[in-house]
Write a protein that binds this DNA or RNA. Structure first.
Length: 971
RNA sequence: GCCCCCGUAGCCCAACCGGCAGAGGCAGCCCACUUAAAAUGGGCACAGUGCGGGUUCGAGUCCCGUCGGGGGCACCA
C-alpha cells in the first residue's frame, strides 16, 4: 500500500474489510429473519406480523459451473434493495433465495466433468452462495432450498400425485362461486361412474370394466395422464420436449438441436383444461403488458363455430366432416374444403376412381384418388414442420375425389387434402372461403376453383386479393335465411342460430395451447411417484412412501444420439437401475404385496420451479407443502385488486413482487400459474395466482470490440481515444483500430466481467450502487467498467463527510442545520422514499448523490443531515451504511431503523420562480410567493418589462395562469 | 406478413397530470494538491428530444405517418 493514500480512506481494500465484518454480523445475528404466523416456525407474537407484510422474490438461478457474471445479480440486487427498504417501514419482509438444481444445464455440466450431478451441483451452489453473500444480499438463509433436495422434491412428487389424482369438471361451481370449472379428486369421478350417475364411454356398467379399461377411462380425465401422441423428440438431447421448449424454427430452446415429431407414449399435463382461466386471470395481475401478450398469444384462444358438412363415401354412405371456422358468416362463399393429410376421415371417403369430369390438374398425375392421396400423405409425412412452414408460400394439395355438400346452399364442393391445414388445430379440416381468406384464395387460384365474394370489399380493394376486413355481407341468402347487408358480427350470429336449429353447428372455442408434455428421458430430475402393475395399470405411490428418491446408477448420463437421427428412440437412464425399478409393495388397496415396475421417466426442470414460492413460506413443514394459514398470511388475496385490473376484479393473491427475465414469459410462468390453479381448486392454497406482480429486469449487455477481421478482442484491453471535437470516440487494441458494438456478455465475445472482480477492485457496495444507477430496472443497458468509479467516488465522499481520512475520527457536528441544508434534506427524503417505493433506484441514487455533494461543500457536516442520508443509502450500500451508523455512535444494525420522515412543511418553498411566456416562449422569470393569488400573478406578469417588450403593444388575447409556476400571455 | 416495446448531450440516463429540456454518473477541458504521474478535490463546457406532419396558448410527453433498434406470433382456419 502506498504511504500517500490516507490511512482511513474508503478504498476497495477498506470496503472489503467492512463488508466482511457486516456479512458475518448479519449471519451471526440472523438479521433478515422474517416471522411466520403459524406452522412449524410459528412466531405469532412477533410485532411485525401485524404491521403488514411483503413477499419479495427472485427467479432462482441454475447453479451453472461458469459462476456469475455482472449481469446475473442485477435483479437480485434490485430485490435486495427493495426488501431492505421495506424492512425500514416496519413490515414483515420475506426475501430469500434458492436453487433450480435439477435439469439439463446441471446435468450437462456434470456429464462434461464426469462427476455425479449432485456433487457438481452442490459445489456450484456453494460458489453461488459465496458470490451472493459477498454482494451483501439480505436473504433469509433458513428459508433457502434447492429443488434437488429430497425433502423438497418429496412435495413436488406429492403435488404431482394430487394433479394425477384429479380431473377437471367444467360443470362444477368454481371455489369462489363466481363461475364454473374446477379440478376435483378423481375419487369423485369414480363414485359417479360406480353409481351410474355418469355413464361409461361405451355404456357398460363400471363394475364390468376390466382394470385396464377403467384405467383408460380415468386417464381420459386425469390432469396428469399418459398418452400416445406425436411429441417433440430431440435426439441431440436424448429426450422429448414440451412445445414451449421448441423454438419457432423447430430447434430445442436449449442447445439448439433439431426436434422431430415422433409418436411416443408420454406423460402429459392437462393444462388445456385451464386455458380460459389462464387467459382471463391475466387481467387481474400486475404484470408487464408484454408478458401478458406473449401468454395470450401462446394460449391463442379463438372463438368461432364448428360446422358439419356431409360427405359422400364410395360405399354410398354419408360421413360428417366437421370444420372449425372463425368466420361462419362467410359460409355461402365456401367453394371447396381442405383436410389435413393426417385426417382420419380420409380412410373412408376417398373413392377408387376419379369422378367424371374433374379437372386433370387436380389429379397430380395419379391414376386414382387413392394413389394420389397416399402419395401426398407420404410426401407430407416426410416433411418436418419446419419444412412445411418453409414452403408456406406455395400451396400444394390433391383432390380426394370426394365431394361435400355446403349446408347453406346445397352446393356440391370438392374436398382436397393439403398440408396447409394442420391436424393439430381445430378439427384438422376447413371450409375454404377464397373470397375472404388469402390462403384459400392462393389455393383456389392454383387449382382453378371458383371464388365467390360474400363480404363487399371497399372501393379500391385489389381485384386479385381476398378481402378479410369488415363489410356488409353479399351473395349470402337461401330460402330460409339471408345475411345480405349484415355486418360480420350480426351475420355470424344469424347463421349460427340458423345452423344450430338444424343441428349443424355449435359455437366453439379453440386454443393454440396444447397439453404440457411432462416426461423427460434424463437422469437429473424428480422421479415420477408412479408404479406400473403387471396389467400395465399405473398407480400413484402412496403419500407416506414419498419421496421416491433418485437411485444411483452406474451411468447417469442420458443416451444421446446423432442430433439428426430422427428414427432413434428415447431411453430413460433410470431404466438401467433395475433394482430400483422392480419393487414389491403393498399399496394398501386390499390386494396385498404385488410386484411393480417404477416409472423411469423424470420430470422436466420446470416442475420444481412451479411451486417454490410456496415452499419458501414454510420450508420446515413435514405435514404439508405449506401450512394453509402461512400461505394465506403471505400470499392470500388482498382486499384491493391490482391497479390495472378491470372493474369488479378481485385480487388473485400471489407473491408481492417477482423479478426475473422475460425469457420465462411462457414456460415457467405459465406452468407455475397452472399448478397454482390446480392447488387452489383442490383447496390447498387460498391464492389463485402465484405471482401478483412481476417485473422483468433488463439484461446487462456489454461492449464487444472486433478487429478488422471481425474477431472479438479482449474488451478489457481496448483503449478509447476521444475525438477532440466532441464527435464519437475511436478505439484501438494493441495499436490496431477496432470497432465497438453492443452484445451479450460471454466468453466467446471476450467481454465477461465478474462480480468478484468488481468486489476486488471497488467493493460490493460500489458495485451495487453502480448496477442500481445504470438505469431503470426493466431496461437493457451496456456494462462499462470504466464508469464504476463514479459510484466509488460517491461512497468515498459520503465516507469523508463522516470520517476523517487521516485520523479516522468522526467529524460531524451536532449543530443545527442551516435552512438550505434542511430543505435539501427533506426534499431528498421525500423523493428517495418515493423512488424506493416504485423501484426507481437509479433516481434515488441520483438524489442521494445530490444531497451528499451539497454536504461536501459545507465546512463541517451536520449529524442531523448525514445520519438520515446514511439511513437512506443503506438499502443500496448496506455495509458502508452499517459501518458509518456504528461509527456515528449507534448500537446494533440499522436494518430495522425506521426510514427518515420528510417534514411536509419543509417541502413547500416560500417563493418559487415563475416562468412568464409570451406565445409559449419563455421571456421572463419572476420570484413570487408560493401561495400567490392567480390574478395578482397575472397582473405582475403583464407588468413585466420584458413581457411588455415582446407583446409590443399587440392586443393580449388570452392569459393562461398556472399559479405559481407559469403564466403564458397569448397575443 | 401481423402485433408489441424503445429512440433526449460523445456515452449511460433524468424530466410527476402536456408547463423553464437536465437530477446523477462516465468520458472531455481547466484549476488545486504533487518533484512527477495516478488517486482525490474544485470548476467549466456540451443536446432542443431519430425524421415529417397534426392537436394545443404551450408537445420530449398526446395523435397520424415514416426511419432505425429490440422482441413476440406466424399456412391457427
Amino acid at each position: 500500500m502506498s504511504e500517500r493514500i490516507p490511512e482511513h480512506r474508503y478504498t476497495a481494500e477498506l470496503a472489503g474489510r467492512i463488508e466482511a465484518k457486516w456479512q458475518d454480523r448479519w449471519e451471526a445475528e440472523d438479521t433478515f429473519r422474517s416471522a411466520n404466523p403459524a406452522g412449524p416456525w410459528a412466531e405469532p407474537d412477533d410485532p411485525r406480523i401485524t404491521r403488514g407484510h411483503r413477499y419479495v422474490m427472485d427467479m432462482f438461478p441454475y447453479p451453472s459451473g461458469a459462476g456469475l457474471h455482472v449481469g446475473h445479480p442485477l435483479g437480485f440486487i434490485a430485490t435486495d434493495v427493495h426488501a431492505r427498504y421495506l424492512r425500514t417501514t416496519g413490515m414483515n419482509v420475506l426475501h430469500t433465495m434458492g436453487f433450480d438444481a435439477f435439469g439439463l444445464p446441471a446435468e450437462q455440466y456434470a456429464v462434461q466433468t464426469g462427476q455425479h450431478p449432485r456433487v457438481t451441483t452442490e459445489r456450484n451452489m456453494e460458489v453461488y452462495r459465496a458470490q451472493l453473500r459477498r454482494l451483501g444480499m439480505g436473504h433469509e438463509r433458513r428459508r433457502s432450498l434447492a429443488t434437488m433436495d429430497p425433502d423438497y422434491y418429496r412435495w413436488t412428487q406429492w403435488i404431482f400425485t394430487q394433479i394425477r389424482e384429479s380431473w377437471y369438471d367444467p360443470e362444477a361451481t368454481s371455489r369462489d362461486g363466481r363461475g364454473t370449472g374446477r379440478a376435483r379428486p378423481i375419487s369423485e369421478l369414480v363414485a359417479e361412474l360406480e353409481s351410474g350417475e355418469r355413464a361409461t364411454p361405451d355404456g357398460r356398467p363400471w363394475a364390468q370394466l376390466s382394470a385396464v379399461e377403467r384405467a383408460d377411462v380415468l386417464d381420459a380425465h386425469r390432469l396428469a395422464y399418459v398418452s400416445a401422441a406425436p411429441v417433440n423428440w430431440c435426439p441431440g438431447l436424448g429426450t422429448v420436449l414440451s412445445n414451449e421448449e421448441v423454438t419457432a424454427d423447430g430447434k430445442s430452446e436449449r442447445g439448439d438441436f433439431p426436434v422431430f415429431k415422433r409418436n411416443l407414449s408420454q406423460w402429459m399435463m392437462r393444462i388445456t383444461a385451464y386455458a380460459d382461466r389462464l387467459v382471463d386471470d391475466l387481467d387481474r395481475l400486475d404484470w408487464p403488458e408484454k408478458v401478458k401478450l406473449i401468454q395470450r398469444n401462446w394460449i391463442g384462444r379463438s372463438t368461432g363455430a364448428n360446422v358439419s358438412f356431409v360427405v359422400g363415401t364410395p360405399g354410398g354412405t354419408r360421413e360428417t366432416l366437421r370444420v372449425f371456422t372463425t368466420r361462419p358468416d362467410t359460409l355461402f362463399g365456401a367453394t371447396f374444403m381442405v383436410v389435413a393429410p393426417e385426417h382420419p376421415l380420409l380412410d373412408s371417403i376417398v373413392p377408387t376412381a376419379w369422378p367424371e369430369g374433374t379437372d386433370p390438374a387436380w389429379h397430380q398425375g395419379e391414376e386414382t384418388p387413392l394413389a394420389a392421396v397416399a402419395a401426398y400423405q407420404r410426401m407430407a409425412s416426410t416433411k418436418s414442420d419446419v419444412e412445411r412452414q418453409a414452403d408456406a408460400r406455395a400451396k400444394t394439395g390433391v383432390f380426394t375425389g370426394a365431394f361435400a355438400t355446403n349446408p347453406v346452399n346445397g352446393a356440391r364442393i370438392p374436398v382436397f387434402v393439403a398440408d396447409y391445414v394442420l391436424m393439430g388445430y381445430g378439427t384438422g379440416a376447413i371450409m375454404a372461403v377464397p373470397g375472404q381468406d388469402q390462403r384459400d384464395w392462393d389455393f383456389a387460384t392454383a387449382y382453378r376453383l371458383p371464388i365467390v365474394r360474400t363480404v363487399q370489399p371497399p372501393e379500391g380493394h385489389p381485384e386479385d386479393e381476398a378481402f378479410t376486413g369488415e363489410g356488409p355481407a353479399i351473395n349470402s341468402a337461401n330460402d330460409e335465411v339471408s345475411l345480405d347487408g349484415l355486418g360480420v358480427e350480426e351475420a355470424k350470429e344469424r347463421i349460427i342460430a340458423w345452423l344450430a336449429g338444424k343441428g349443424l353447428a355449435e359455437p366453439t372455442v379453440t386454443y393454440r395451447l396444447r397439453d404440457w408434455l411432462f416426461s423427460r428421458q434424463r437422469y437429473w430430475g424428480e422421479p415420477f411417484p408412479v408404479l406400473w402393475d403387471e396389467d400395465g395399470v399405473a398407480h400413484s405411490v402412496p403419500d407416506h412412501l414419498l419421496s421416491v428418491e433418485l437411485p444411483e446408477v452406474p451411468d447417469y448420463s442420458p443416451r444421446t444420439y446423432d442430433p439428426e437421427d430422427a428414427d432413434s428412440s428415447p431411453e430413460a437412464p433410470l431404466a438401467r437401475a433395475t433394482d430400483w425399478v422392480h419393487v414389491e409393495l403393498d399399496l394398501g388397496d386390499g390386494r396385498g404385496v404385488r410386484p411393480f415396475r417404477r416409472e423411469t421417466n423424470t420430470m422436466p426442470n420446470w416442475a420444481g420451479s412451479c411451486w417454490y414460492h410456496l415452499r419458501y413460506l414454510d420450508p420446515a413443514n413435514e405435514e404439508a407443502p405449506v401450512d394453509p394459514a402461512v400461505e394465506r398470511y403471505w400470499i392470500g388475496p388482498r382486499p384491493e385488486p391490482v391497479a390495472s385490473a378491470p372493474a369488479g376484479a378481485t385480487d388473485p393473491g400471489g407473491v408481492d413482487l417477482y423479478v426475473g427475465g422475460v425469457e420465462h414469459a411462457v414456460l415457467h410462468l405459465l406452468y407455475a400459474r397452472f399448478w397454482q390453479k390446480v392447488l387452489y381448486d383442490l383447496g390447498y392454497v387460498s391464492s389463485e395466482e402465484p405471482f401478483r406482480r412481476l417485473i422483468n429486469q433488463g439484461m446487462v449487455e456489454a461492449y464487444v470490440y472486433r478487429d478488422a477481421r471481425g474477431f472479438p478482442v479482449p474488451a478489457a484491453e481496448v483503449e478509447e481515444h476521444p475525438s477532440g471535437d466532441g464527435g464519437p470516440a475511436t478505439y484501438t487494441w494493441q495499436g490496431q483500430p477496432v470497432t465497438q458494438e453492443h452484445g451479450k456478455m460471454g466468453k466467446s465475445l471476450k467481454n465477461v466481467v465478474t462480480p468478484d472482480e468488481m468486489c476486488e477492485q471497488y467493493g460490493a457496495d460500489t458495485f451495487r450502487v453502480y448496477e442500481m444507477s445504470m438505469g431503470p430496472l426493466e431496461q437493457y443497458r451496456p456494462w462499462e467498467t470504466r464508469a464504476v468509479v463514479g459510484s466509488m467516488r460517491f461512497l468515498q465522499r459520503l465516507w469523508r463527510n463522516v470520517v476523517d481520512e487521516e485520523t479516522g475520527e468522526v467529524t460531524v457536528t451536532d449543530a443545527p442545520l442551516d435552512e438550505e441544508t434542511d430543505r435539501a434534506l427533506h426534499r431528498t427524503i421525500d423523493g428517495v422514499r418515493a423512488d424506493y417505493e416504485a423501484l426507481r433506484t437509479n433516481t434515488a441514487v441520483a438524489k442521494m448523490i445530490e444531497l451528499n455533494n451539497h454536504l461536501t461543500k459545507l465546512d463541517v457536516v451536520p449529524r442531523a443531515a448525514v445520519e438520515p442520508l446514511v439511513q437512506m443509502v443503506a438499502p443500496v450500500a448496506p455495509h458502508l451504511a452499517e459501518e458509518l451508523w456504528e461509527r456515528l455512535g449507534h448500537d446494533g444494525s440499522l436494518t430495522y431503523e425506521p426510514f427518515p420522515q420528510a417534514d411536509p412543511a419543509k417541502l413547500v418553498e416560500d417563493t418559487v420562480t415563475c416562468v412568464v411566456q409570451v406565445g409559449g416562449k419563455v421571456r421572463d422569470r419572476l420570484e413570487v410567493p408560493a401561495d400567490i393569488d392567480p390574478s395578482a400573478l397575472e397582473e405582475l406578469a403583464l407588468a413585466s418589462e420584458k413581457v411588455q417588450a415582446f407583446v409590443d403593444g399587440a392586443p393580449v388575447r388570452k392569459v393562461i395562469v398556472r399559479a405559481p409556476r407559469l403564466v403564458n400571455v397569448v397575443v
